Amino acid sequence: MFIKDKFINKKPIISFEIFPPKKTGSIKKIYKTIEELAVLTPDYISVTYGAGGSEHDKTTEIASIIKNKYNIESLAHLTCINSNKKDIYNTLNNLENENIENILALKGDIHPDYKLKKDFNHASDLIEYIKENFNFCIGSAVYPEGHLEALNKSMDLFYTQEKINKGTDFLISQLFFKNKIFYEYQEKLKNRNIKVPLQAGIMPVVNKKQVEKIVSLCGTYMPEKFIKVMNKYENNKEALLDAGVTYACDQIIDLLSSDVDGIHLYVMNNPITARKIVERIKNILKYLGENNG
């Protein structure tokens, strides 16, 4: 099923994001993670493309297990900056053969070990190629605070519009820790008459160093309240987990109360975090499901 159709039939959408293990021997661990996440009945689970696209074979394998073993829609990430058209065609063909119907189309990071092949310079180029050659539902990433590579926020919005024009069916936001930032971004999209569904990306804090690394890569603003939580409980794993889940749930409840299209949880392969959050908001989701149709 195309994910874009889920937004028509149900609101809000709840999804999780996981990543392929970097060590071959850890592949069994991700199977257990998927099994625990599947019990929570998300609308779909997305699988990242690995560092620099080096884990793309695992992405296809994991996405296939999610779809074909657990009957949950999977969203396979696909980056293009390190690939030529032949590479992309082969990957898309493999995904199609595995019954994968949804792709998150991304430019990706330049991999130091790969020579740039110049067939795809932007995510919009990849989206156009997919739409011309295959029948996939396409998601795109958006950046409420602006992409670090964009000259400014206006140019970032221009590139988002380009992705929409080329065939993007729905959007997933980069993580943010202040909802006002997301709401302001929503308004900017509305002003550009962009009407495709937009999911809010939320990352629960369970590891201070991990979050700080990710924030350094994407430039996400950390509110004083958020920093206080990390600093206060960073040396106690259980306390930080509880505090991080509570902070994330506060964000999510506010977003759901504002009729957001969906929540995309960056669970970092941690099913415990996902379970705690879903348990906390299950009655809210039930109420919204019954009233939104």
Results as ranks from 00 to 15, higher is better:
151 L>V: 13
136 F>Q: 06
134 F>V: 02
144 P>W: 10
154 S>E: 15
142 V>C: 15
123 A>F: 05
132 E>F: 00
167 G>A: 09
134 F>T: 01
133 N>L: 00
167 G>E: 10
133 N>H: 13
148 L>C: 07
128 E>H: 06
156 D>C: 10
129 Y>N: 01
134 F>Y: 15
137 C>G: 03
133 N>Y: 02
149 E>W: 00
139 G>Q: 07
161 Q>F: 06
157 L>H: 07
163 K>I: 04
127 I>K: 12
132 E>P: 02
138 I>W: 06
129 Y>L: 09
167 G>D: 01
165 N>D: 14
143 Y>M: 09
132 E>R: 14
143 Y>A: 09
145 E>V: 05
136 F>D: 05
157 L>S: 11
164 I>C: 08
154 S>Y: 01
155 M>C: 10
164 I>Q: 07
151 L>H: 10
162 E>L: 14
136 F>L: 04
163 K>R: 15
133 N>V: 03
148 L>T: 06
149 E>N: 04
131 K>P: 02
159 Y>M: 11
127 I>P: 07
150 A>R: 02
165 N>F: 05
139 G>P: 05
133 N>R: 04
149 E>D: 13
128 E>N: 12
153 K>R: 12
163 K>D: 04
162 E>R: 15
127 I>Y: 01
160 T>L: 15
136 F>M: 10
145 E>Q: 14
154 S>C: 00
130 I>Q: 10
168 T>D: 10
142 V>W: 09
164 I>N: 06
134 F>K: 10
158 F>G: 03
159 Y>H: 14
130 I>W: 09
163 K>A: 10
124 S>V: 12
167 G>M: 07
157 L>D: 09
142 V>D: 11
134 F>I: 08
136 F>W: 08
124 S>W: 05
124 S>C: 14
136 F>I: 05
135 N>I: 03
166 K>R: 15
130 I>E: 04
137 C>H: 08
142 V>L: 10
157 L>Y: 06
147 H>R: 08
138 I>D: 08
168 T>H: 09
162 E>P: 04
123 A>Q: 11
139 G>A: 13
148 L>F: 07
144 P>I: 11
143 Y>S: 11
125 D>S: 12
149 E>S: 13
130 I>S: 07
125 D>I: 01
154 S>M: 08
129 Y>F: 15
156 D>L: 06
135 N>T: 10
129 Y>E: 09
140 S>F: 00
167 G>C: 03
152 N>L: 09
165 N>G: 08
143 Y>D: 04
160 T>Q: 12
129 Y>H: 11
157 L>I: 11
168 T>Y: 02
125 D>G: 12
133 N>E: 02
156 D>I: 07
134 F>P: 05
143 Y>E: 06
130 I>T: 03
143 Y>K: 03
132 E>S: 14
153 K>Q: 13
159 Y>V: 05
165 N>R: 09
129 Y>I: 00
151 L>Q: 12
144 P>G: 08
126 L>I: 01
141 A>Q: 06
